[in-house]
Amino acid sequence: MIELQLLLGGLQNGALYALTAAGFALIFGATKVFHVAHGATFTLAGYVFIGAWNAGWHPALGVLAAMAAAVAFGIAMERLVYRPIGRHEGGFFTVFVAAFGVSIVVQNVIAMIAGRGFANVDSPLATATEVMPDLFLAPVFWISIVAAVAMFLALTIFLSRHPAGVALRALAQNADLLRAYGLSSGKLSVLAFALGSVLAAPAAILTAMTSGINEAIGNHVMLISMAATIVGGVGSLRGAALAGLLLGVAESVVLVFLDTQWAEGASFMVLFAFILFRPSGMFGAAVAR
């Protein structure tokens, strides 16, 4: 039964990874920016929710505040960091270092304000009940799955039906042609960052409810998002989400054989295997080296 328990726990984590990774993949696909500070978005959203909770706000208000913080941070990164670098044609390493620098700043500012170590909210939603013999599930499990599926569906519908969504996909394919049709790639980049960042907020809130978050969790989230985007195949949201789910399950199921400290290692073995044997990922077109 422990296997089933771990599998379901992995699904819950994986659903949240899938959301975060889809956000990262959306940003990377549309704007070609490797948004390393996506982990910082996650941390920020989680701590805003915890702050709102501790201040006695209504949870719905806390969720809104967390989402607003995530969107604001994403847009600020685009306007203040990525765009100035893009203007002088900085390469990807310039972008990477700048975003990493910002992540370090966010991590330490949060540590100074909220203190180091794990913080979480005590919600009745996170109390597990025995649903089957030896199988414990909390309402958070269902909320995570439903939230992930709902947000992913909404995103898919937006990208395929709404004019701005179609324009975003066009931006991903050919930015020059998009500009030739008179659309603003700058405005669409802001939209991509806003959408991608908002996807990290529910994942951060649900993680804060279950296992808790600390100021350094952004690193882990960033690595998982990156790994999922690459494993899923760059440019494929579906791939990134599926890979996020897969990594969550892998991290959890590996505990059947190994101790917890190897959980993160499992993700990277998957990433390494893909990089060595199938760098284009599960759904990606073959990429040039």
Partner: peptide, 21 residues
């Protein structure tokens, strides 16, 4: 002090990349 130090590293990295890559 540790946090301030890290904030200075991080900030310096980001600002240098933006203004003096």
């Amino acid at each position: 002090i540790g946090s301030v130090q890290q904030i200075i590293y991080g900030g310096a990295m980001a600002l240098l990349m933006i203004f003096r890559p």
